[in-house]
Amino acid sequence: MSAGYAPGRTLPLRVEFVRQFRRRRTLTMFGLLLALPWILVVAFTLGPEPAQQSSLRLSDLATQGGLNFAAFTLSVSATLLLVVAVALFCGDTVASEASWSSLRYLLAAPVPRDRLLRQKLVVALGFSAAAVVSVPVMALLAGTLAFGWNDIRLPGTGEVIAAASVLPRFGIVVGYALVSQLVVAALAFLLSVSTDSPLGAVGGAVGLVIVSSIMQAVEALGVVREFLPTFWSTAWLDALAPELDWSGMTKGAALSVTYAAILVAVAFRRFRRKDIVS
């Protein structure tokens, strides 16, 4: 082998980060995610005041303060926008290299296959995490500037909790949102490894999430629904309940980790044995 070659030094994270970050779709996605809270702020400011002040829905409480606004923003973006973002970062990462034909030159460099996948997964998860975190954080900033740093009013009960004491809860919310997106990330990653079409990988992952959310509306499925990957996706609302209830989030996290571990393992296994023909 060449004197300077060491498998453990191939494809450093920084290199992969730069390769992915400078992409137009990465920058567009982050731009969109960071702009969304401001768009919502404008929408709330321009729109008429809600007639019924006593309503305790999350959307009607959004203008109560920065924390309320951030919770609302997360609730509207978690179901689709964040899913799309995570699916984009994790689904695009290998498939786009395949479609550019650059994958074969990386592998012949040689970057060992497991290492290539590992580095790509780490960077993709990093981007996904940044996406998931950036929305609530930016919403907190935008909401606080627009509506003030007020105590949070909980949806449903209307109970008021001091802003300072709810911040750790907010950390739980963001943490759970991260964990619950793992399953989307792993699914997109597996599809990314399996196909040469980036659109197929991203669309496939989003599509399966949509199918899962449709299935969970079918109450006839009974207890089976609890094992759908998206069933617990809104469990973070429990962290904003008057009494912090861990049971839903624990179940959701357990399920997400379960699916993610298996999907990622299958992805590695497939990629090892795959004939790269792109």
């Binding site: 070659y5 400078r22 550019w100 034909s101 592998l107 060992p112």
Partner: peptide, 26 residues
């Protein structure tokens, strides 16, 4: 050295096969 996927000896090989593969945005 026997060639397997990712074998270190591939570092002595330079290749251009079936067209170029570049990141178009760079």
């Amino acid at each position: 050295r026997r060639v397997t996927p990712g074998a270190p000896v591939l570092s002595r090989l330079g290749s251009f096969v079936e067209g170029p593969g570049f990141l178009p945005h760079l």
